[in-house]
Design a protein around this nucleic acid. Sequence first.
DNA 1: TATCGCGCAATGCTTCTGCAATGTTGGGGG
DNA 2: CCCCCAACATTGCAGAAGCATTGCGCGATA
Lengths: 224, 224
Amino acid sequence: MRILLVEDEPELASALKTALRRYDMVVDHAASLLEAGDFAASENYDAILLDRQLPDGDGLTLVPKIRARGNATPVLVLTARSDTSDKVDGLDMGADDYLAKPFAFEELLARLRALLRRPANVQTQVIRAGDLAFDLGHREVLVRGEPLTLPRRELLVLEALLRRTGRMVQRSSLMEAVFGLDDEIQSNALDTHVSRLRRKLAEADAKVEINGVRGVGYLLREIS
Amino acid sequence: MRILLVEDEPELASALKTALRRYDMVVDHAASLLEAGDFAASENYDAILLDRQLPDGDGLTLVPKIRARGNATPVLVLTARSDTSDKVDGLDMGADDYLAKPFAFEELLARLRALLRRPANVQTQVIRAGDLAFDLGHREVLVRGEPLTLPRRELLVLEALLRRTGRMVQRSSLMEAVFGLDDEIQSNALDTHVSRLRRKLAEADAKVEINGVRGVGYLLREIS
DNA sequence: TATCGCGCAATGCTTCTGCAATGTTGGGGG
DNA sequence: CCCCCAACATTGCAGAAGCATTGCGCGATA
């Protein structure tokens, strides 16, 4: 899951980023309207967290702009103002939800999950392959019922591959799933994670294997 | 956005169609399993809404069928039955999400959006010939649903030929497609790649064959 | 502060790929 | 009608490019 966080206050931004990371989200941070527009145009996000008060204008104006580009990414607006008229404004302009500051992080997360349609209490989606079961909602990997704990980046790699079990995942697409924009990667970090993941899958005897395809990417397949 | 709606109950079908149109989706409607199979084979859809109870059988059986043809279109299953075992069945057969009737239209739409938002499920162009399916976007070749991994140059040869299945491709045009303008090739490298590709296509029994035409170039034909 | 995750870089290895040598085919001229 | 040459087919090989693996150190986390 990839989130665009638009928030100019550095302290809050950094706190949110850290908190969201803990839920295995890849977070890109934009501190201004301008930056946010660029980010939203160039990447695919699963949701946008949007502050209204930004140095270069009202965050809300971003919404019709990206909607006009045919982008339906759910937007959750954060704001200090909380009267009803503000809320109506926000929703009218195409935002999907509205949260007044100050807020409890729990509530933010709950609303975010609702936007992403991953309510924790409802039956969550599980992807299976080989003896693996990846519970997308609980961010948990089971091998024949036994939990397999994986570090964040490896989990993201596995998720991206599992979503296309048996089929190619381009290298670029994997990079997008695993790294945010400000993770400046200039090495074979992805290969590293794949390698470590491979070892763990083999050790757990998960009955899946990750094949690399030179010049294209990776694919995960079930083995008997 | 192009949706295939598979639903035999006329009233519900028509209501859904109208509702989805309102969200700028192009909806094709199939009322039977047979019809659905034809539609899915001949068009590229961004998602399929699939009812299970159809006059000529269980809608779910459609899923493995289209997957076997190398079609990865996300499928959202609609059903009256809603016990957990049914859901697991559905997801195991390759469906992407599951929604029990009766449902709120809002929820259907949200789940549909969620499916379409997954970057992995962005519909890319697929060229078919014989038992081959070349997914241009993912740079992947499937033979009857099984991935066939090919090195870059052979992939380029195949792509160029597939784009003109059954018609001549001039040698010079192939050269350009495979080596680009920068590579200075001064050998029979192209012939080499064609040869290696031929062997792999034969081994995979892809039901296509590459014919050379002296002095002109190559063409790819389907064989029975 | 001890642990763990993570990016990085060095190393070794696999696979690709251009090339050339050799085999095969086909068509036009003698 | 047959031969010969040119064009294509196939295969082994070696250089190169890309990938896999591993140890290391820094920095984040608890």
